[in-house]
Design a protein around this nucleic acid. Structure first.
Lengths: 326, 326
DNA sequence: TTGTAAGCGTTATCAC
DNA sequence: GTGATAACGCTTACAA
């Protein structure tokens, strides 16, 4: 950065007015019309831009929000980043992005950096429990961090029920829920709960297989093998906790000579699209990513932080994507 | 942000030393051992973090870099964002992300914001020609913006040649290059040039179809229909300028009752993976995304900006992903 | 309505 | 090696 960037002083001198007047013009404070015009002309002539650092230092507000994500090279996270960034930019905020690879120290370190940067708020999707300094405006996505920290998520429970409902509509008679992921509790675990609740209420036979991250491939295979009777799978409807898992399961089943969706139908969760905007990877429960992003931003930037809900669940929907019969 | 954040003054008082001493400790400047310990203890006790805004204001350097992308909900861009962010964080820099939706005014507006934020540098992938204030440290990805602005890209030309070479190795006899995208000139256009050059040198018959963004679907179909003789396509090897296009072409061909890769083999470009880390979408020329990211960051942060190359091309590689016979 | 001046939290330059 | 002190560019009372 060159030293030659013009400052308010330069603009004031150029316009022949006082420093304070220039400041007022740039802050939308009433000022004599003729002065305003002079100031604006001078600013344009010099190519002046207000220095957000100086402003932030003085005013204590920085128009900057930090977004903390485990990664951004996964379609769900990148869609989230995209929509949050856009929503922020529209509201004239800038976004600092931090990726943590889901490592606890990295997440904690981020919070330190965030404090250094005096951001006006933080939106985070973290895998690890972390203590949030209560002086920070904070919104958590998909994870309840504590009673004082608002959480925004899809209605995972309803999504689970919806998946079960759809599979039954599609004439499945024996269902299964498959899940793999971090053992840490998060909102997304409710997908299985909703699924189970619906199966129970309809008295449909179902299986629940929840695995932690690790060598789970073989366990899924064992599960399927144990459910093959006379060369046929006795399960005909599967709900996977993510689209990613749904695709892996589909491949796995096809390797076992089972046809999707003829023999088994699969519904995933997320609503991811190929290349961001293309086709769905599988039949799925769609998360309202944009809504999640905008809700998070709105809550974070709300003037009145006093009566913000602890948990906001946004409605999901179902869409067919080739792994169900329709 | 509460007003209650401790400052260097508080730390100095707590430690019973002078303000300047505290500053030195945090800047790694030599200071009496006993003082350093007292200061560090006091800082930890108060939970002090240096205020980057004040530092930036004073020192004129902000440890912040802006990344400007058209979007981040596409796997190539999000991978880029991920690796650039990680590289920056490793070097103790923060990253401001701007998404522009490829709109010229948005891109220009970004540059304004970037100047306001006094970032130490900018990495951008833009679709539109824009004037870069020369006082800014700037790296462009995939697009030559001017003689003074370094550009980092894959070796697109070599990638085009490699695609043609592979298709010939795979026993194709009549090739085609398909491309769709912005009419604006960018480094990526060299993919077709390299392909054509190789075909020419080997005297293989080939077609070139370059379309601009728009209603191109029907034009591709017309192209294929015009190349179907006796129910068979007289083209048996296709190089698409992106993986995305390759997938669309594959679907299109299958709708025309042509089998991939039995009847026609397809090679894309990008090396995108499903869900970020999963399988390839198609056989493809892989871009070294991480290398592009790290090179960009290294060039941007290089102390000596005097002898930086105008264009850096990074090596690509080929991988089979189901749309070629192997 | 306009101009003036006191900081915001740091860093850097000096005398000590 | 340490400790006052003057900037950095801006906002905001407050005085004119």
């Amino acid at each position: 950065m060159k030293k030659t960037m013009p400052t308010m002083k330069d603009v004031a001198q150029e316009a022949g007015v006082a420093l304070g007047t220039v400041s007022k013009v740039f802050n939308g404070i009433a000022v004599g019309e003729s002065y305003r015009i002079k100031v604006e002309a001078a600013a344009k002539k010099l190519g002046y831009e207000v220095n957000q650092y100086a402003r932030g230092l003085r005013a204590g507000t920085t128009s900057t929000v930090a977004l903390i994500l485990p990664r951004v090279d996964h379609p769900f996270f990148s869609a989230l980043a995209q929509h949050i960034c856009t929503a922020l930019l529209q509201r004239n905020y800038r976004m600092l992005l931090y990726v943590t690879a889901a490592q606890p120290e990295a997440e904690r370190e981020c919070l330190g950096m965030v404090r250094q940067n005096k951001v006006d708020g933080v939106i985070a999707l973290t895998y690890n429990q972390l203590e949030v300094a209560e002086e920070l405006s904070f919104i958590s996505i998909d994870r309840c961090l504590g009673p004082d920290i608002p959480c925004v998520a899809s209605d995972n429970y309803a999504g689970g029920r919806l998946a079960a409902e759809k599979l039954l509509e599609l004439e499945c008679t024996h269902l299964a829920f498959l899940r793999v992921g971090s053992p840490n509790l998060s909102e997304t675990d409710k997908r299985g709960d909703g699924f189970e609740s619906y199966c129970r209420s309809k008295q449909v036979p179902y299986e629940m297989l929840r695995l932690d991250d690790g060598a789970e491939e073989v366990q899924f295979q064992d599960f399927f093998r144990s459910h093959i009777k006379d060369g046929r799978l006795d399960i005909d409807g599967i709900f996977c906790s993510t689209d990613f898992l749904a695709c892996r399961i589909r491949t796995m089943l096809e390797e076992l000579e089972l046809r999707v969706p003829e023999d088994v139908q699969i519904i995933g969760f997320d609503g991811l699209r190929q290349f961001g905007t293309g086709e769905l990877f599988c039949s799925t429960i769609i998360q309202p990513v944009q809504k999640i992003a905008e809700t998070s931003v709105d809550l974070l930037l709300a003037k009145d932080r006093s009566n913000i809900p602890a948990l906001v669940c946004l409605p999901v929907s179902y869409a067919s994507g080739g792994t169900t019969r329709e």
